[in-house]
Design a protein around this nucleic acid. Sequence first.
DNA 1: ACTCTTTATCGTAATATTGCAATATTAAAT
DNA 2: ATTTAATATTGCAATATTACGATAAAGAGT
Lengths: 110, 110
Amino acid sequence: MGATKTEHFTDKQNTIAAMAKALGHPARVAIVEYLMKVNECICGDIVNELPLAQPTVSQHLKELKNAGLIKGTVEGNSICYCIDEKAIEKMQVYFANISGKLTKMKNKCC
Amino acid sequence: MGATKTEHFTDKQNTIAAMAKALGHPARVAIVEYLMKVNECICGDIVNELPLAQPTVSQHLKELKNAGLIKGTVEGNSICYCIDEKAIEKMQVYFANISGKLTKMKNKCC
DNA sequence: ACTCTTTATCGTAATATTGCAATATTAAAT
DNA sequence: ATTTAATATTGCAATATTACGATAAAGAGT
């Protein structure tokens, strides 16, 4: 075997896992941080910014897009990528929820 | 090749990526959520809770622990696992930061 | 039409992950 | 000391990810 048993988990769990997985690589974290830094949307500058070949960056962008973390808009022959605010917010709320519940019950453990 | 080029990225980026990667699997999301639900620390009930064999759960726990998301304390012959509040908070702050910066600059893009 | 620029896709090698049966480890209980 | 219970580790097959060279696709500019 070796295939992830997605069907055994809830949609929300799978969604969170998918977004987390997309950020589970330093290159993709770096891409998101760069997109945040430059504010306005950017395309292949990322290739110049990162120590990775163009196809590799393209692949990482694809995964971030599939997970819904970034959006891409065609603009002439180039493509404008940017962070999808909603996705980031979803993650933030998710962790805030856990964090909140933990502090509320004083997390007395171990 | 095929090995992640961790050395090209910052420590923080690698840490965030490692924590995100640990949550990048629905089973591990489910484990964290279960740990949160039961409040008091739990060990092998997780095996009963999830549709996975004991070795598989053990492996997932190991990865969550390596990423610093959970803590495990030996308690007799069983082991008490629980969420590491600090790690969750780190993630929460990280996403809150991005989210905050995006809304501040109105994220005009795409 | 041709060229240039930009991005995506294909193909492939190296490596990592996933899942579990079998087995080992460790400590409590008898 | 033996048994029992709870976890961890090993070994292995199936699958997924990572990275990149080569190539394709698609629009802009000449």
